[in-house]
């Protein structure tokens, strides 16, 4: 599913940070956790795999597509249709209610169509994630766990082939952490997708198929 080779990346305005990865891969249907110290580049790796940022050199293949060869619009379209990203900061828009946040990707991207089918799936997902009665609420009216579930719901809506989760269970109580992870694992199981999650929660690690120490890459 994911093939990363000889990756080199640095931020244009920060020469101190250089991400070097010789080889990294994730199989289809595999659930992989990445651990490592803060600031080591885990989030940057996820963003490169998602096509949000472009590597200086090296190759990145996701589902057989060579992301490093695509231009910005093509990478963006690939990300929207093939990758579900649960961001560390959740990135919910405060002026939209839960339902509008969940379908927001469909409103801002012409490659996705917000049709009846998508709306029904959004409702179903929200109900499965325990947000069925909170679709009209604003993000500020939700608990942290509910906000996290809304972000997961938004990531899962386009039925992605790959789910990237950046500290998706951070700042949650143990019960909510387990619940979020259950939801992600269920999505992997149902959709035959892969999961690559960055986490600091060591008690959750045994549930993953494989745990990768970022510093060893």
């Amino acid at each position: 599913m994911i093939e990363v080779n000889n990756l080199l990346f640095s931020y244009p305005k920060d020469n101190r940070f250089i991400l070097k990865i010789k080889e990294f891969h994730v199989e289809a249907g595999e659930k992989v956790a990445i651990i490592g110290p803060s600031g080591s580049g885990k989030t940057s790796l996820l963003k490169i795999i998602a096509g949000i940022i472009h590597p200086d050199s090296g190759t990145v293949h996701v589902g057989g597509t060579a992301l490093h060869e695509l231009d910005d619009p093509a990478r963006r379209n690939f990300r929207i249709t093939r990758i579900g990203f649960v961001f560390q900061e959740l990135e919910l828009l405060e002026y939209l209610n839960v339902l509008d946040n969940i379908v927001h990707t469909y409103r801002i991207n012409p490659v996705l169509t917000l049709n009846r089918q998508a709306r029904v799936r959004a409702h179903q997902l929200a109900c499965e994630l325990g947000l069925g009665d909170k679709l009209g609420r604003m993000p500020s009216e939700l608990s942290q766990g509910e906000r996290q579930r809304a972000a997961v719901c938004r990531a899962l809506l386009p039925s992605p082939g790959l789910i990237l989760a950046d500290e998706a269970t951070g700042n949650l109580d143990p019960a909510n952490k387990a619940h979020i992870l259950d939801l992600l694992f269920l999505a992997v199981q149902q959709g035959n997708t892969s999961l690559l999650a960055v986490t600091h929660d060591h008690e959750l690690l045994p549930r993953f198929d494989r745990v990768v120490d970022f510093l060893s890459l």
């Binding site: 949000i52 990135e91 927001h104 801002i108």
Partner: peptide, 19 residues
């Protein structure tokens, strides 16, 4: 911050301008 969010969600610059 909000614009950064919609960029992350896959919004193009042209779309932001349209919004």
């Amino acid at each position: 911050r909000e614009l950064q969010t919609i960029f992350l969600l896959g919004c193009s610059r042209a779309k932001v301008l349209r919004l």
